[in-house]
Design a protein around this nucleic acid. Structure first.
Length: 1043
RNA sequence: GCGGGAGUGGCGGAAUGGUAGACGCGCUGGUCUCAAACACCAGUGACUUCACGGUCGUGAGGGUUCGAGUCCCUCCUCCCGCACCA
């Protein structure tokens, strides 16, 4: 009986559902294993074959761990807030919740098709009020906490208030805004309630502030830094500008060090860790205060990582936006400086990128004083200094820093060497730290390691600076001027934000009449009718915060909700989180490296500080699955010049032999023009053009008459119609040549408006004769276009096809991203329909290592399909008979089985699913060669296969007589005894080159092997007379003879 | 420019320092079939040889080693990330 995946799979999928096979319990004595996929955004396009790759791999691990006796949590949910649903709502007026629900249903169908072991009773959706209740709850906790540097953790703001009341903020070491004033207890107590609130905002872990944000006018929203690429939005590629807006921020910078240190404790891909380190951008250095000549009340603070180079600072550069620019600029320079500031402000990010290498800047006319040697150095402004980084000012050391060197060279400023090891300063800066300092006052003669502390100590003694750690990372903007996101649980009273009562959670997204900003530019939530907060039932109503949370809010903690998804008392119950603790294995794309994966670590550290979660890092191990690329099919469409080349190659050559050389006569047309073809001997010229260009025909006709030429017009449309039959065109040419008529033109309307040329014919023509178009891969098989299906598509209406002798129309291919626009999307449903879910799962794994990007090629799936059929064939005969016997297995069969146990176990553990599939194939090939079919071998083999192909395994498992699921079988135990054989085959090398093999008893000693090897004919032959210098026997491995 | 990763047949890809190319696709030949598809059997890195066999071969070049796709050095190419970050 044939293997029939359709029947088997639907049967077991509904059985699993009935039996609740995949429902996971928290109440268990088993060890836990939590495997997690990054949850998807349910887009309208549905899944393509690339999406389930990671899900399949994790499903295999989940099922494997279950067979190994673990209680496995393998959940799935949806990151269901997001821009596409909202854009769709703007266009159609359909509420995003409605379209999102539909998309989720579609996703679910597709996922169910593949036979995953997800526990759907634990599904979460970030847009579900029961879920975002807790997102809002965590936001409230962030608002209520500040980061205390002495405790090195988050502490309630209420404690801060107590301390301020007793002693002011002098003794408080906390992360706060740079502009936080210093105050005493008395000063604090004298402040009004509002003033106190405003001060506290400078400490809270989430807070509103006026800040420059990446404003995307086309999308009407704010983007975070990682959503902006090259000055345009990552999604959609719209221009982004800097705009000052009141925004909620997350004080992630408070956790910079812990986020950095935590990276050393987790098993994540090095590239992700490196990207996060980069993003955090910790640099150690010193801040130094420079006095300004003639401005006793002003000073410029700079941050430098190379304080040791300070004696080489020959000028200073401020960002054009620096607050001191106006004050310091001398009258003589004022006009120029003002012009530069204005110019710099007008430049977009893209322009700045493009001109990064151009040196620009203006002298302010002012001088700063180097605190170490009292020297006056000129102050410039230039936009290579970023206002947003450090203090917006740098001390420029042209001998050690290339940008400073470029600037100094351009403006003719001195370049002073500061280390004796610096070289070629005329050509470039030399940033070396080697050698001894020169021209450097108190550190002359010292080395780097000694110089730095000397300088920093001096600065600290003098109160002019200190050692400092600086981060590139900024606080994270948390507001979006959008509708489809979590409402912020805050209302505004007297221009101060207040949290709503916890009992009023969740704050549900109100209905609005339109999903666009208001006419006055307020976010869509401003449209909600009567949406006000009443702190007291009878009191006045206050306006809610109108922005919503960004996409990363819900995804920053969702993994805890799966542990306890229906808890209405907490985001996750203590017991549940105490049992599941953290994610053992997290799988997802690397595109979230600094977005989701950094913010979620931040929230986790915060939740850890509050004692709400037990681990500092929530995911021990992370694997990035690679992309599955599409294999696009391309077809070649002929341009006009193709027809000319075609005529020349296929039609006209013989005529030119008969009718004399081709000449290209000068023309009477205004512009210079040559006829496409011309026959000297009988005054015929040929023009190739389109039916649509009647204007052109008329002018060429006049020109030909004036030249005394007879004209044959060949339309590309008529050529296209008869493209596979050269004789038709040849006849027309012959007729024209032999006639005396002045003018030849077909007036029959064309059928073909365009012509496609089979790829295998295109090499004969120039590349520029064609334009390449994507064609739907679903109507292409083996790079051959299915003409029946093709001619039904609009793009092939009125098309001609040029084919070769094989009569097939072939396509070129290209490997690129799988996307609708490239017509290379392969739908998993189609694969499952044709080959079954088990086959699809195994083929996805078989493609190659999970972490690597590779192209999808449907062709190869037949290999896996025939494997499954053969595997099935070992159990079920053609007549439907059940084949496995209860006979005892022999050594060979046991060796085959245990070899497979060993390989598959090892390979799952190291996440090498592609080789696992190979091992199953080998097992099947070898057992079939032995014509073996014994229960003692095949039953464990079914268990081994179960994580990969659960449906077929379940079917066979039940046919063995079991009544419970194969998911609860036990993973077969490896017995290494069976791997041993009686003899060992040694490859024998001579001088490292393989010369033959020798079979020896497994228990032969090294000396025995040596003796036997030297007896071999092929060894003697190869040795000749040469003496053996050395004989290496690696037991069980190899023999190498050195002569 | 900096950082990370990768270069192996026609293709996807295997190889704890120990027989390079497992497994699969494709291709070639054969069996079955009226025929095609499926299925089954055999072969398939290149060059060379009637054959046995031999020579070359993991981006390039060097090194370590009895032995290198694997380790070290120099370089090239591709992919990904970051990029006036002081």
């Amino acid at each position: 009986m044939e293997y029939a995946p359709r029947d088997i799979e639907s049967k077991w999928q509904s059985w699993w559902k009935e039996q609740r096979t995949y429902q996971v319990s928290n109440d268990t004595s088993k060890p836990k294993f939590y495997i997690l996929n990054m949850f998807p955004y349910p887009s309208g396009a549905g899944l393509h074959v690339g999406h389930p790759l990671g899900y399949i791999a994790s499903d295999i691990v989940a099922r494997y761990k279950r067979l190994k006796g673990f209680n496995v949590l393998n959940p799935m949910g949806y990151d269901s807030f997001g821009l596409p649903a909202e854009q769709y709502a703007i266009q159609t007026g359909i509420h995003p919740a409605v379209s999102t629900e539909q998309n989720i249903e579609r996703y679910r169908e597709q996922l169910d098709n593949i036979g995953f072991s997800f526990d759907w009773s634990r599904e979460v959706r970030t847009s579900d009020p029961a879920f975002y209740w807790w997102t809002q709850w965590i936001f409230m906790r962030l608002f209520e906490h500040y980061y205390d540097l002495d405790a090195d953790k988050a502490i309630p703001v209420s404690e801060l208030v107590t301390r301020f009341g007793k002693a002011g903020n002098k003794s408080v070491r906390a992360v706060c805004d740079d502009n936080t004033p210093v105050f005493s207890a008395d000063e604090w107590n004298a402040l009004s309630e509002k003033e106190q609130h405003l001060i506290l905002l400078k400490y809270r872990l989430t807070f509103p502030e006026e800040s420059y944000v990446n404003w995307c006018p086309a999308m009407g929203t704010v983007l975070s830094n990682d959503e902006v690429k090259d000055g345009v939005s990552e999604r959609g590629g719209f221009p982004v500008e800097r705009k000052l807006m009141k925004q909620w921020s997350m004080r992630i910078t408070a956790y910079a060090d812990r986020l950095l240190d935590g990276l050393n404790t987790i098993d994540w891909p090095e590239s992700i860790k490196e990207q996060q380190r980069n993003w955090i951008g910790r640099s150690e250095g010193a801040s130094v205060r420079f006095a300004v000549d003639g401005h006793p009340d002003a000073h410029i603070e700079v941050f430098t990582t190379r304080v040791d180079t300070i004696y080489g600072a020959t000028f200073m550069v401020l960002a054009p936006e620096h607050e001191l620019v106006d004050r310091l600029t001398t009258d003589a320079q004022a006009a120029e400086v003002r012009a530069y500031v204005k110019w710099a402000a007008s430049r977009s990010e893209i322009e700045r990128m493009a001109e990064a290498k151009k040196v620009t800047g203006v002298n302010t006319g002012a001088y700063a004083i180097n605190p170490f040697n009292g020297e006056k150095i000129p102050i410039f402004i230039a936009d290579y200094v970023l206002a947003s980084y450090g203090t917006g000012a740098v001390m420029a050391v042209p001998s050690g820093d290339q940008r400073d060197w470029n600037f100094a060279t351009h403006f003719n400023l001195p370049i002073v060497p500061i280390l004796d090891a610096q070289q070629n300063l005329e050509e470039a800066a030399d940033p070396t730290k080697e050698g001894r300092y020169v021209n450097s006052g108190m550190i002359n003669g010292k080395a780097y390691a000694e110089a730095v502390p000397t300088l920093v100590n001096w600065l600290e003694e003098q109160g002019l600076g200190k050692g400092k750690i600086q981060y590139k990372m900024r606080n994270a903007v948390f507001s979006r001027q959008r509708y489809w996101g979590e409402p912020v649980p805050v209302y505004w009273k007297d221009e101060v934000p207040h949290l709503i009562r916890e009992s009023d959670l969740p704050l549900v997204l109100p209905p609005v009449n339109k999903y666009l900003p208001t006419e006055t530019g307020e976010p869509p939530l401003a449209r909600a009718q009567g949406w006000k907060y009443y702190p007291e039932p009878d009191g006045p109503g206050y306006e809610y915060e109108l922005s919503t949370m960004p996409g990363w809010a819900g995804s920053s903690w969702y993994f805890y909700r799966y542990m306890d998804p229906h808890n209405e008392k907490a985001f996750c119950g203590k017991e549940a989180v105490g049992y599941w603790r953290d994610v053992d294995w997290y799988i997802g794309g690397s595109e979230h490296a600094v977005g989701h994966l950094l913010y979620s670590r931040f929230w986790n550290h915060f939740l850890f500080d509050l004692g709400l979660v037990p681990e500092r890092e929530y995911a021990r191990k992370l694997t990035n699955q690679g992309m599955i690329q599409g294999r696009s099919s391309l077809i070649y469409r002929a341009k006009e010049c193709f027809y000319e080349e075609y005529l020349w190659l296929k039609v006209l050559k013989p005529f030119f032999e008969d009718y004399g050389p081709m000449q290209i006569p000068a023309s009477n047309l205004e512009e210079s023009y040559t006829y496409d073809f011309a026959f000297e001997t009988n005054d015929l010229v040929i023009e190739v053009t389109s039916w649509k260009r009647s204007d052109k025909i008329e002018s060429i006709r006049r020109s030909a008459e004036a030249d005394g030429k007879r004209l044959l017009v060949l339309f590309i449309e008529e050529l296209a119609d008869s493209i596979n039959d050269h004789a038709v065109t040849a006849a027309k040419v012959r007729q024209a040549l032999e006639s005396r008529e002045r003018f030849f033109m077909t007036d029959k309307g064309p059928k073909a408006e365009q012509l496609f040329v089979s790829y295998d014919l295109t090499q004969k023509y120039s590349e520029h004769c064609f334009s390449k178009l994507h064609v739907d891969v679903n109507i292409v098989e083996d790079d051959v276009l299915n003409m029946e299906k093709a001619v039904q598509l609009p793009m092939f209406q009125k098309a001609g096809f040029k084919v070769g002798p094989s009569k097939r129309f072939t396509c070129a291919f290209e490997v690129e991203k799988m996307s609708k626009s490239k017509f290379n999307v392969v739908n998993p449903d189609d694969m499952v329909e044709q080959y079954g879910a088990d086959c699809f799962r195994m083929y996805e794994m078989f493609l190659g290592p999970l972490e690597v990007s590779k192209p999808w090629d449907t062709k190869g799936i037949t290999g896996v399909y025939s494997f499954l059929r053969r595997f099935w064939g070992m159990f079920v005969g053609e007549d439907g008979a059940w084949l496995p016997s209860d006979e005892a297995p022999d050594r060979d069969e046991l060796r085959i089985l245990h070899n497979c146990i060993k390989k598959v176990t090892d390979d799952i553990e190291r996440f090498s699913m592609n080789t696992c599939v190979s091992h199953f194939m080998i097992l099947t090939n070898e057992l079939r060669a032995l014509k073996s079919s014994k229960r003692a071998i095949l039953e464990p083999a079914v268990t081994l296969l179960a994580p990969f192909a659960p449906h077929i395994a379940e079917e066979l498992w039940h046919r063995f007589g079991h009544e419970t699921t194969v998911c609860d079988a036990a993973w077969p135990q490896l017995n290494t005894e069976y791997l041993k054989s009686d003899t060992v085959t040694y490859p024998v090398q001579i001088n490292g080159k393989l010369r033959g093999n020798i079979e020896v008893p497994a228990d032969a000693s090294k000396a025995d092997v040596e003796a036997m090897v030297l007896e071999q004919d092929f060894v003697k032959r190869n040795l000749g007379d040469s003496p053996v210098k050395k004989l290496i026997v690696v037991p069980g491995r190899i023999v190498n003879i050195v002569i």
